[in-house]
């Protein structure tokens, strides 16, 4: 995946560039808003990572400028400003996701991968499949190896999100944000318990695990 990181802190940018490279992506770095805007407008990137406070041109203005030009590349905003309304302004300016500094790299990576263009294509599908697991978004049914599994509404949404991003790491905060629509940080790992409940429902009685825990990062739904 081709990723452009617009970040003025050189050390942070180099770290992200290197780590993204290790994760198998091709990352470029722009040190200020102007350069970032030019590169993003011309280059064919899959995801943009934009810091909010940048020299020469503010991050939000870069995003708004790109959107005005018809550049629809998904944007992940990085910011030290973490209040709910900062997030709202960021997303309103055209950002697709928002991550507050300091962040775990695993969180950044998971969000970038989920944001990529290829992931977006799944929105139109009505049935998600992973191995013998099947989720029908229209009839709200889940089957594994042809056998129907009864899920609570929240469990269904949890599985839906995991399956939509099958093969990618999904973090706990991403689940809380997308399945419960809350952005705060629960003190106890409530998400883990929900996931393990879901796991017991979709794995009990079947031999192959599909919902994997990725240590230090989150979860991944993957058949086989």
């Amino acid at each position: 995946m081709k990723i452009l990181v617009i970040e003025d802190d050189r050390e942070a940018a180099e770290y992200i560039e290197k780590a993204l490279g290790e994760a198998g992506h091709n990352a470029h770095v722009a040190g200020d808003g102007e350069t970032g805007f030019t590169l993003a407008a011309d280059g064919d990137y899959d995801v943009l990572v934009v810091d909010r406070m940048l020299p020469k041109r503010d991050g939000l203005s870069v995003i708004a400028g790109l959107r005005a030009r018809g550049v629809e590349t998904p944007v992940l905003i990085l910011s030290a400003l973490g209040e709910v309304d900062d997030r709202v302004t960021g997303l309103r300016a055209g950002g697709d996701d928002y991550l507050t500094k300091p962040y775990a790299f695993s969180e950044l990576l998971a969000r970038i991968e989920v944001l990529s263009r290829r992931a977006g294509a799944k929105d139109v599908e009505t049935v998600y499949r992973a191995g013998d697991l099947e989720l029908d978004r229209l009839s709200h049914t889940v089957k594994r190896a042809g056998k129907e599994i009864v899920l609570q509404p929240r469990e269904f949404r949890l599985l839906e999100y995991l399956m939509r991003h099958a093969g990618r790491v999904v973090t706990r905060t991403m689940l809380l944000e997308n399945v419960w629509d809350y952005h705060f940080d629960p003190q106890t790992n409530v998400i883990d318990v929900h996931v393990s409940r879901l796991r017991s429902k979709i794995e009990k009685g079947f031999d192959a695990p599909v919902l994997h825990t990725i240590r230090g990062a989150g979860y991944m739904l993957k058949a086989g």
């Binding site: 209040e83 709910v84 309304d85 929240r154 809350y182 629960p186 409530v190 929900h194 409940r197």
Partner: peptide, 28 residues
Amino acid sequence: YSAEQTGPVDLAEIVADVVELYEPVAEE
């Protein structure tokens, strides 16, 4: 001086959400 905005919110919904979120942990 928090910049957080307020709007109409249904407290019943929040109670239901939080209870639902914590229910598995409590059960455990």
